[in-house]
C-alpha cells in the first residue's frame, strides 16, 4: 500500500484522488474494563467525504479523537499517508468543533493568521511586520473571502453569529491545507436555515480544494446529503449484564453515488441512529 514503489503514483503521498490517505488496522480503544471501540478496520481514500453517524456513546467521538491524535489506540494501528500516527495533534489534520473552535481574543483575521504565524515565527508565534506578514495577511484574507467573511476581518468572535464563527473556524483550519479535515458536529448548534448555507459552503470547499473530510454528525440526513460515504458506528454484540464488555465498530459502511445521496438514508439505518 502506501510507501510502496508503485510507479503510477496513485498510492503515494499527496497522490491524485483515490489513494488511501487514512488507514485503520484492527483498532481497539479500551478504558480499563470498558471497551469503546473494537476491531475498527477501514481505509479512507483521498478526496472522500466520510460522514460518521451512530447513537450516543457508540464511539463516534472517540473515532474522531483517534484521527485527531487527541488519544491513541489501545491496540492496532492508524496510518496517515502510510506513517503511523502518534497520539498528538499536528497541522496535517485540521479540525472544526461544534463550539470553542476559534480564539475569542483574536479578530477574524488574527484567528486565520494564527496558523501561518506559528509556522513562520517559532519564537513569538507572531509576525510583526514586513513582507512575510503581508504575504500571510493576504493569504488569510483570501481564505476569509472564500468562506464569505471578507467584510469582517477585524471583528471579534463574540460579535459574530454562530454561523459566522463556524465559517471562521473553517477558514482557520483550511489555511493550513490539512491532509484531512475533521468536523465534529460542526453545524449542531446552528439554526436550520444557517445549517443549509453551511452545507453549501462545506460542500463547495470540499470540491474546490479537493479536501478529504471526516464529519461526525447526529443528523442522518446531513450525513447522506454531504457524504460520499457513510459510516455508522454501533455495537455488534451486546451483553445486558456487562454493557461495557463489547465495543462499537463500523457496522454500516457504504459509498454513496449521486443517486444514493439524493435518495437519502435507507430505512435500515433508522434504528441505528438516534
Amino acid at each position: 500500500m502506501a510507501g510502496g514503489t508503485d510507479m503510477t503514483g496513485d498510492t503515494a503521498t499527496g497522490g491524485p484522488p483515490g489513494g488511501v490517505i487514512l488507514s485503520f488496522r484492527d483498532v481497539w480503544v479500551e478504558y480499563g474494563d470498558k471497551v469503546v471501540l473494537e476491531r475498527v478496520a477501514l481505509d479512507i481514500a483521498q478526496g472522500e467525504f466520510v460522514s460518521v453517524v451512530g447513537p450516543s456513546g457508540a464511539g463516534k467521538s472517540t473515532f474522531l479523537r483517534l484521527v485527531l491524535g487527541q488519544e491513541g489506540p489501545t491496540r492496532g494501528q492508524i496510518l496517515l499517508d502510510g506513517t503511523e500516527l502518534t497520539p498528538e495533534c499536528s497541522p496535517d489534520r485540521g479540525v472544526v468543533f461544534q463550539r470553542y473552535s476559534v480564539f475569542p481574543h483574536l479578530t477574524a483575521l488574527g484567528n486565520v493568521m494564527f496558523g501561518l504565524e506559528c509556522a513562520a515565527s517559532p519564537l513569538l508565534g507572531k509576525l510583526l511586520g514586513g513582507a512575510r506578514r503581508r504575504a500571510a495577511r493576504e493569504e488569510a484574507v483570501r481564505m476569509l473571502e472564500a468562506v464569505g467573511l471578507g467584510h469582517n476581518l477585524d471583528v471579534y468572535p463574540a460579535q459574530m453569529s454562530g454561523g459566522m464563527q463556524q465559517r471562521l473556524a473553517l477558514a482557520q483550519a483550511l489555511v493550513k491545507h490539512p491532509r484531512v479535515l475533521l468536523l465534529d458536529e460542526p453545524f449542531g448548534a446552528l439554526d436550520p436555515g444557517i445549517r443549509l448555507d453551511m452545507h453549501e459552503l462545506v460542500g463547495g470547499l470540499w470540491q474546490e480544494h479537493g479536501l478529504t473530510i471526516v464529519m461526525v454528525t447526529h443528523d442522518i440526513n446531513e450525513a447522506f446529503k454531504l457524504g460520499t460515504r457513510v459510516l455508522a458506528f454501533d455495537k455488534r454484540r451486546h451483553d445486558p449484564h456487562a454493557p461495557n464488555r463489547y465495543g462499537a465498530t463500523a457496522v454500516y459502511d457504504v459509498k454513496l453515488d449521486r443517486k444514493a445521496r439524493e435518495a437519502g438514508p435507507p430505512a435500515e439505518l433508522a434504528g441505528v441512529v438516534t
Partner: peptide, 23 residues
C-alpha cells in the same frame, strides 16, 4: 479554558511555547 482551543492551536501547528504565548 476550553480544551478545544488547545487542540485547535496544535492542529494549527502551535508548539507548547506558542500555545502559552498566544492562546
Amino acid at each position: 479554558l476550553p480544551a478545544e482551543q488547545f487542540v485547535k492551536a496544535q492542529t494549527l501547528g502551535a508548539s507548547t511555547w506558542q500555545l502559552t504565548l498566544r492562546v
